[in-house]
Design a protein around this nucleic acid. Sequence first.
DNA 1: CACTTGACCTGTCCGC
DNA 2: TGCGGACAGGTCAAGT
Length: 283
Amino acid sequence: MPELPEVETIKRGLQNELVGHTISAIEVRVPKLFIGEANKLVGQTVVSLDRRAKLLICQLTNYLLITHLKMTGQIIFVPKKDEHWVVGGHPDKAYIADLPHKHTHIIIEFDNGTLYFNDLRKFGWMKLLEKTSDLEPLVAEYGVEYTWPEYTLDYFTERLGRRPNTTIKQALLDQSLVAGVGNIYADESLFATKIRPTRKVADVKPKEIEALYHAIPAVFELSLSHDGTSSQHYRQHDGRKGRFMEFVNVYKREGAPCKVCGSPIERLKIAGRSSHYCPKCQK
DNA sequence: CACTTGACCTGTCCGC
DNA sequence: TGCGGACAGGTCAAGT
């Protein structure tokens, strides 16, 4: 479910809640979703939160706690003190009140509230790493972050060029190209650059590649400014939805009129993933 | 080696 | 209303 903007939004939200706070207890209801010795979390204090690709990285006093939300994972933090939300009131109180529920698989108690890990499909996981260097194999295959200085047109072009016979859609989903691009943002970036997702990488012209290189960060930033895309399951750390679905041009808009030309958006499968595009705008 | 498919799970939606 | 099938944002392993 969550791609880069969603995980980044959760990270930013949790930073405000968790940094400096200490874990008092942990309950793992579905053992296979927590890798490592969960009890070691007790007594640990959150030093910082970070993100790499779609991984959420929580630096603790002595360990790292890594989370991948995969398709339907959620991390919801409920503060002990309700006044916490007094400013404006909590926008989705009913959602919070339901926790924990049948899809809550891990519960972590902090001195200031409770963190719930929910996952309908149980694809997501949490992992306790004993030392910082254990993170390396987990992130070794990821490409650069779009915010890094290493994200250059040369890098992007060179990496794409290694896979000339793949469709551009498939290439974008490869985490070793640009970390954090998933189905939504691949489709939206391709619409923004008028490139049809079925095109072979080798047939995409340098100018189009350059446009794509700029479009990916732009789409990420736009989604971030609306707290991500809540197509179905995604929630922010406080239970609110993201609002980017209101702004998508093609994703999940099959049959709806293109916002640019009015043609019905089409959908087809590319490498097993549904892909949405405008048949008129995208060549 | 590169690419495709199936598996991991559970729920929703759509057609008959 | 019930039932079967397709589909869902991610990533691996196994197969071609």
